[in-house]
Amino acid sequence: MLNTKAQMRMAWMGPAAIFVFMIALWPLAGFLPPISPNDSAEEIVNIYRDNTDGIRVGMFLATVAAAMMGPFYATITTQMKRIEGRFSVYAYTQLGLGMLAILLVVIPSYIMQGIAYRPDRDIDPEVIRLINDVAWLPFVGAFVTVSLQNIMIALAIFQDTEQRVFPRWLGYFNIWTALAFCPAAIEFFFTTGPFAWNGIFVFWLALSFFGVWFFVMFFSLKKAIAEQAIEEAALEADAAAAVAAKG
């Protein structure tokens, strides 16, 4: 009983993380819509100069939000282990990739912190633009860990043919989101248009798919944990009855 309560608390870290991340990205850093890869070097220098403290606080909170996803991914792992048992290769892979996905938000955030640290540098703005590119390309386009993580969740769900923990459609849903993140790979080829990092097909689609994936997973997790609590209560009642009968 205690265990399912702990799981439920950890699952709730997820929505809290999303909330903090949106605050960090939107009003604080002013990255919604994101910095355009098509901006001139001077424009990019100005963005960091005009909103220095906003970007500093925002990118710090982005790392906080990223860390708060850790408990959420661990809760997914715990429920996957209910399907897989002790030798749970999919659950562990999912956990490892989830933690890496966190790092792929943390590192770009610190690179942007680096630009905002001395906004009045007397150097070629092109250098600032280069560092900004280095931060934004993975910030938006590091989808590979997330895609593979989703596939791991799907593979575990497909093992559970009685659909004891998660419904089977959730497996297909994860395959879909895994595939939906893949077009982000085309961001490396374009600096303008729908396929650049700020384009509809990369940034906005990835953001909405992550949002949809997150909330579907969150509610499925809550349901699975609640069912586990009921199951454990039933087993405890069984055990108590058997002990009473024996005594």
Binding site: E162, Q163, R164, P167, R168, E227, I230, E231, A233, A234, A237, D238, A241
Partner: peptide
């Protein structure tokens, strides 16, 4: 005891 969860 409460209803056991049967799976889907």
């Amino acid at each position: 005891k409460p209803e056991p969860v049967e799976g889907r």
